[in-house]
Design a protein around this nucleic acid. Structure first.
Lengths: 229, 229
DNA sequence: ATATAGTGTGTAATTTTTACACTAAGTAAT
DNA sequence: ATTACTTAGTGTAAAAATTACACACTATAT
């Protein structure tokens, strides 16, 4: 409930964990800060929520400003509001994660002034992060680990047309363990949400794999049924 | 990321969906508003986050002020921040749910001045709610529906000692469908997190059921394994 | 022609899930 | 003490899902 509206000093921001997949590794986008506090540290990209923006809009804007990308899958997952999380005052931050297919590094725009640069860094080898951003990242990874078991979010990290091996690779990276090829295929095809294309992988120096596409319409029909890995 | 700290007009509140179980029904605690906007409407209890409170502390405080209870299981689950959700200005609110065993109505303290009264109302028959509280409630229910399938939260709604039938009842109410008694028992006992007591139910006019207790230590050992209903 | 590297496929054993109905135990009423 | 009533407590067989496991095929590169 909300009654009177006092003028309070709480600042309200959004921080994003942008997960990217380049076909090999899972990476996240970090910026190198150009300002105190934590000048020269790596941090999650984020910003203040504008007065007339919805939260989701604000998250999309932050992502757009950094990458030039629109229409990316993003989800809010937690609010961090410890009174001491920011050395200069109370800042409550909402965490979003996004899932992005990386193809070439053209997605990186010139970054805004508060950062020296932005970089995609593999999650297997992250630097120390500013503020409580390690905690925010950890919780984000945990979230997608759980999500991928029940929702078709893996596709967001892949090009529209992908091979089953690529898909399996994404699952293995996120869940963090190897899966059996035959069982994986049996299961994922069993859900009936993939459309097999008349097209093969190109540019590989071995037998080319069949390409598939995620079929949203078939997925919609599944509604209510549990997907589980 | 957070840079300078501008003085912004955003107000920051917490709203709580307090789920209570009295042995029969699932209820939530609603307050009847005494102030504009939405005077005389039912609303979720909530409040402004204090300047030195953590978010979890703030949620616990709100719950304590309303019910006199401490140590209740609460979890933050979503932030609602549509620019128009509050008619008098921008209010971003964090939603928490809590799970409470109701035993006698002694838990209800005199409520603060912004409310006429507070009442536990069965979720099967809720009034129209103020602001976007219907949406907040809906998302909260959805959340515990998913949660109860993978985490031992049902026990929070029951007395320390409970019968398997009572436990099944809670599952049925939250998940929203009937379960088979034998299969339920087989499965839940199979997890090995219940301790059978040497004690029977009292005060019933039929064969008394065995009482059980949730065993946190055994549960801790399960860590990593999936519980699934 | 041959080496190489990843694709694509089936089955049997095991485990988990589902569906299903009767007897036992305690209380209340007579 | 008999009876009626109400819920507790239990097992099994069939079906479905999961696991473990290995080899032949195909495209390319040399």
């Amino acid at each position: 409930m909300e009654q009177i509206l006092p003028h309070l000093d709480s600042v309200f921001s959004i921080d994003c964990v942008l997960f990217g997949f380049d076909g090999k590794e899972l990476k996240i986008l970090l910026i190198e800060r150009n300002e105190e506090p934590f000048k020269d540290w790596w941090a999650l990209p984020g910003n203040i929520v504008g007065p007339d923006e919805s939260l989701d809009q604000s998250a999309s804007r932050i992502l757009y400003e950094l990458t030039g990308l629109r229409g990316i899958f993003m989800e809010q997952y937690y609010a961090f509001g410890d009174p001491n999380r920011h050395p200069q005052g109370r800042v409550i931050t909402l965490a979003y994660y996004a899932l992005i297919r990386l193809g070439g590094d053209k997605e990186l725009r010139p970054v805004s002034n508060y950062a020296k640069r932005a970089n995609w860094l593999p999650i297997t080898d992250l630097p120390r992060l500013a503020f409580d951003h390690q905690k925010i990242y950890d919780k984000g990874l945990e979230k997608i680990k759980r999500r991928i078991k029940h929702q078709p979010i893996a596709f967001e990290l892949l090009p529209e047309k992908f091979t089953l091996t690529q898909l399996q690779h994404v699952y293995e990276l996120i869940i963090g363990k190897k899966l059996d090829k035959r069982n994986f295929r049996k299961k994922i095809l069993g859900f009936g949400v993939l459309k097999e294309l008349d097209e093969k992988q190109k540019g590989v120096s071995y037998r080319a794999a069949t390409l598939y596409r995620f079929d949203k319409r078939k997925y919609a029909k599944l509604f209510g049924k549990e997907i589980s890995f």
